[in-house]
Lab assay of single mutants.
Amino acid sequence: KTEWPELVGKSVEEAKKVILQDKPEAQIIVLPVGTIVTMEYRIDRVRLFVDKLDNIAQVPRVG
């Protein structure tokens, strides 16, 4: 699995749990929505963009 659209609106902790069940090797990085990030693709990275309430604001994707 490479993306988790069902996690939008969920808490960071809930999202981490689901992603690590699907992809145990994932390196999860939590960032505020709108953060500028590098464009290199990494198969072991999932970025979680969160709103001010620490809920997932964008679809988490591998990369």
Results as ranks from 00 to 15, higher is better:
Leu53Ala: 14
Asp54Thr: 06
Val50Asn: 03
Pro32Gln: 09
Lys10His: 08
Glu40His: 09
Ala15Phe: 02
Gln27Ile: 09
Glu25Ile: 02
Arg61Cys: 12
Glu3Ala: 08
Val8Met: 10
Leu20Ala: 11
Ile43Ala: 13
Trp4Gln: 00
Leu20Lys: 11
Val8Cys: 05
Asp51Trp: 01
Ile28Trp: 03
Met39His: 15
Phe49Pro: 02
Met39Gln: 14
Glu3Lys: 06
Arg47Asp: 13
Pro32Lys: 11
Val30His: 00
Val33Tyr: 11
Gln21Thr: 13
Leu20Arg: 11
Lys52Cys: 08
Lys52Met: 11
Val46Arg: 02
Val37Met: 10
Lys17Gln: 10
Pro32Met: 07
Tyr41Asp: 15
Ala57Ile: 09
Ile28Gln: 04
Gly9Met: 02
Gln21Asp: 09
Ala15Thr: 01
Ile56Arg: 03
Ile36Ser: 15
Lys23Gly: 02
Ile19Pro: 02
Thr2Gln: 12
Leu48Met: 06
Glu40Asp: 14
Val33Ile: 11
Val62Leu: 12
Met39Cys: 15
Val59Gly: 02
Pro32Cys: 04
Leu48Glu: 02
Leu31Lys: 07
Ile28Val: 11
Lys16Thr: 07
Val37Gln: 13
Val18Ala: 11
Pro60Arg: 00
Leu7Gln: 03
Asp22Gly: 04
Leu53Asn: 15
Ile29Gly: 03
Ile29Thr: 14
Val46Thr: 02
Gln27Asn: 10
Ile29Glu: 15
Glu3Pro: 00
Val50Phe: 05
Leu20Ile: 07
Pro5Val: 03
Val33Met: 11
Asn55Leu: 12
Ala26Asn: 01
Ala57Leu: 06
Val33Ala: 11
Ser11Trp: 06
Tyr41Gly: 14
Arg42Met: 11
Ile56Thr: 01
Val46Ser: 03
Lys1Thr: 08
Met39Glu: 15
Asn55Arg: 14
Lys10Ala: 10
Val12Glu: 03
Ala15His: 00
Lys17Ala: 10
Ile43Gly: 11
Val30Ile: 09
Arg47Leu: 14
Ser11Tyr: 11
Arg47His: 14
Lys10Leu: 10
Ile28Arg: 00
Lys1Ala: 04
Ile56Ser: 03
Trp4Asn: 01
Asn55Val: 10
